[in-house]
Design a protein around this nucleic acid. Structure first.
Lengths: 241, 241
DNA sequence: AAATTATTGTATAAAAAATATACAATAACA
DNA sequence: TGTTATTGTATATTTTTTATACAATAATTT
């Protein structure tokens, strides 16, 4: 595999993805840990090929990390401060990993490419966490789902990027009606409510929430779901396309 | 002045600005016409210096075109299709202006720089049209305010960029309460209503509109404005900062 | 098999917000 | 002084949102 500096990428432009999933009443974010000494976490990122739309690039990065096609994606903001550079992080990484890293000519070229100032386009994705098989790249030690409230300390401004993504998701919720992308094919009304509550960080009154969601007219009601619990069985719903 | 290709710009990244003004019940956009044969209009644009935040770059471009500092600005979207290139436009321009253009080495270098694929960050600005003295650059034949409903045919995807900017402005209106940036220091309630109507492309009931705006608690009431009209004089208001 | 329990689905009441209507106040002019 | 075209404010009406009530029901317990 070629190194980034040798690829046909647009230079100084990157894409950072905030991949949201949902599990056990919690909003989760998929975050790789970098395979070097020193505990570095960084959002799934990538670059844009010369012949590639930025939306395609984001889709490619998402596909590579989650293994799934046709992911729900929204561009939400550009991060473009002049101070946005990997240099402090890379220097720290190199200091921690002096033994492992060769200082060949090629490495220098990579270093120069990576430590330039980058303008990053932020995308957020909503996925069914059950369908995702997180994919490590060569550079990753691990890739895990972290609760939005227990994120690891990330490099650069990646924590801010997650904050912005969450704010945007919250404000998009009514307009785009996209929270269903976090759920499996079929789900109960209670599950919908719990997703909304996890995203909005507040509770809803059950009866009014149910009415509000049904009045959106985006769900079709299927058979009942018998769980074995000693109470009335809820209906299953599916998002109408 | 140095040519763009020789400047210390980030390559393949541009900033396009949709500068909104308001006059005579109409939303206006400030658009330069390029100083070459062939009737080419293009949004006020520019590039980002290596040491410059993207927000600073947008402010600089805005300042250069309007002559005013501290402009209200919002980043609204990135346009990043692989097909986004000036090449068709430039080739057309060159065909129209074959006599005028030298084909020196330097011109080739400019041509190569300009015809690459560009990722453009869209900003919209809201200005008091009375304060703006539109500034032509070397490349402009003219720079004029056009009604949002009578825009000239623009190069590339610049019409789409204006459409997106307007949509964003409309949706930002409630949340950011920014329409007052289109008005002078003091204004009547009727003028506020007319600005809102121009932006939203719909009418409001006067009495309810007045109540809604006053309940925002962002205006302070000043003296009355006597216009000489044979009716009750309206109050002037100022936006509280 | 009937009573019990913990939900779920739906209806309706109460409160709040948005919209429509009424009307007095007033600046200039006839 | 009456007339006209607004403006500012109050109030009525409608719609939407939020709160409350209650019957239905899937197991489990008695």
């Amino acid at each position: 595999m070629k190194n980034p500096s040798q690829q046909n990428y647009i230079s100084q432009v990157s894409i950072d993805c905030v991949i949201f999933g949902y599990h056990e009443r919690q909003l989760k974010v998929l975050i790789p840990k970098i395979n070097f000494k020193g505990d570095f976490w960084a959002l799934p990122s990538g670059f844009v090929y010369q012949e590639e739309d930025i939306d395609q690039a984001a889709e490619r990065i998402l596909r590579d990390r989650t293994g799934i096609q046709d992911i729900y994606l929204e561009q939400f903001r550009v991060f473009g401060k002049a101070s946005r550079t990997n240099k402090p992080f890379l220097d720290e990484l190199i200091a921690f990993n002096f033994d492992k890293l060769s200082v060949k000519n090629e490495a220098q070229q990579e270093y120069d490419w990576f430590t330039k100032r980058f303008i990053s386009i932020g995308y957020y994705a909503l996925v069914d966490i059950n369908k995702v098989v997180p994919q490590k790249t060569d550079l990753d030690e691990s890739i895990e789902w972290y609760s939005i409230h227990e994120l690891p300390r990330m490099i650069m401004d990646h924590s801010d990027i997650v904050d912005e993504a969450l704010k945007t998701l919250q404000s998009h919720l009514d307009e785009k009606i996209n929270a269903f992308n976090l759920l499996p094919e079929t789900f109960t009304m209670k599950e919908v409510q719990e997703v909304y509550e996890a995203i909005c960080e507040k509770t809803f009154v059950r009866t009014n929430f149910q009415k509000m969601i049904l009045e959106l007219n985006v769900l079709e009601r299927l058979e009942k779901k018998f769980t074995g619990a000693a109470n009335k069985a809820p209906y299953l719903y599916r998002f109408k396309k």
